[in-house]
């Protein structure tokens, strides 16, 4: 590089120093957009195209099928239990981990993360081993006429396991970065612990909490592998939406399958929209929460 460039690059080319040439930019953006189009958009678009293959009428018709409605109800019920539960656990875990120092914290973090990387199949399998008729607690459950797997409780348990880390994972880094000074000030001013938590800590993390809940919810409604192992696949009774999709698909009802799939894809889109809206509306607060991981 020439001497003059070395001395006065900023004066002559103010952007050069910290950015790329316009051509490079366009090429990089083009690569990113093409990659995302091929990997992300195409599957999404396919879902809607297939769902609409026979027109809107057929699409709405497939929603009115009683088994489809039952699957939607079950999915909502499962999410209504699993998501609040994981939200509460996530809050407790992040309070303990982010606001206190203790031995074994790394191990605890790893254990909370573990469901992220367990195969969903294993997540279902463990409950079969535990609660199945041949499992450890099976004989006791049978004797007391309690049905866990192949019924709603098993589906809920498997879903809770799969979505366990979602809220905690959003909250912990944010609460860590926020430190404890605000809570300490509140306590010093005489606020109770609960009051401090509800009026100081929660408002600070509410958007991260909401985002965690949204992601947790999307995954809870969409879980397939784990639920498939513990469901029993009884039509209209223990089929969640993703399992119902598989069933419809297997009945050559491709439009019906993609119709239900489009509902779930719509949920995914709604999640992303809600998240984008939150980011736009509360840019400052979320910038901090973006520092997760």
């Amino acid at each position: 590089m020439a001497m003059s460039d070395r001395v006065l690059p900023l004066a002559h080319h103010p952007e050069r120093a910290t950015t790329e040439t316009a051509t490079t930019k366009v090429i990089l953006i083009a690569i990113a957009v093409l990659f995302l189009a091929a990997i992300l958009f195409l599957p999404l678009v396919t879902v809607f195209i297939e769902a609409l293959r026979k027109g809107w009428g057929t699409l709405f018709e497939s929603f009115s099928d009683p088994d489809t409605l039952a699957a939607i109800r079950l999915t909502l019920l499962v999410a209504a239990i699993a998501v609040p539960f994981n939200a509460v656990v996530g809050l407790a875990a992040s309070w303990a981990i982010a606001k206190f120092e203790f031995k074994g914290k790394n191990l605890l973090l790893t254990l909370i993360d573990l469901p992220f990387s367990i195969s969903p199949v294993i997540s279902g399998l463990v409950y079969v081993l535990l609660f199945g008729a041949q499992g450890w607690l099976g004989p006791w459950l049978v004797a007391h006429d309690i049905q866990i797997i192949f019924a709603v409780p098993g589906i809920v348990l498997a879903t809770v396991l799969v979505t366990f880390p979602f809220v905690a994972r959003e909250l912990i880094p944010l609460m860590q970065s926020q430190g404890t000074s605000e809570e300490e000030a509140a306590l010093m001013l005489g606020a109770s612990g609960w009051y401090t938590f509800l009026h100081v800590t929660l408002p600070n993390v509410k958007w991260a909490l909401l985002y965690g809940v949204l992601l947790c919810n999307a995954r809870a409604m969409g879980e397939f592998g784990a639920v498939s192992v513990v469901s029993g696949h009884i039509r209209g009774l223990t089929n969640t939406m993703p399992l119902h999709i598989e069933i419809l698909y297997n009945e050559y009802n491709f439009v019906g399958a993609f119709a239900v799939a489009s509902l779930l894809a719509g949920l995914a889109l709604f999640t992303l929209l809600a998240k984008t809206f939150l980011e736009w509306r509360f840019a400052g607060e979320l910038a901090a929460s973006a520092r997760r991981h």
Binding site: L215, A218, G222, F224, M241, P242, I245, A268
Partner: peptide
């Protein structure tokens, strides 16, 4: 999207 879209879909 992949976080939110069900894997079976």
């Amino acid at each position: 999207l992949p976080f939110a879209l069900p894997t079976a879909v």
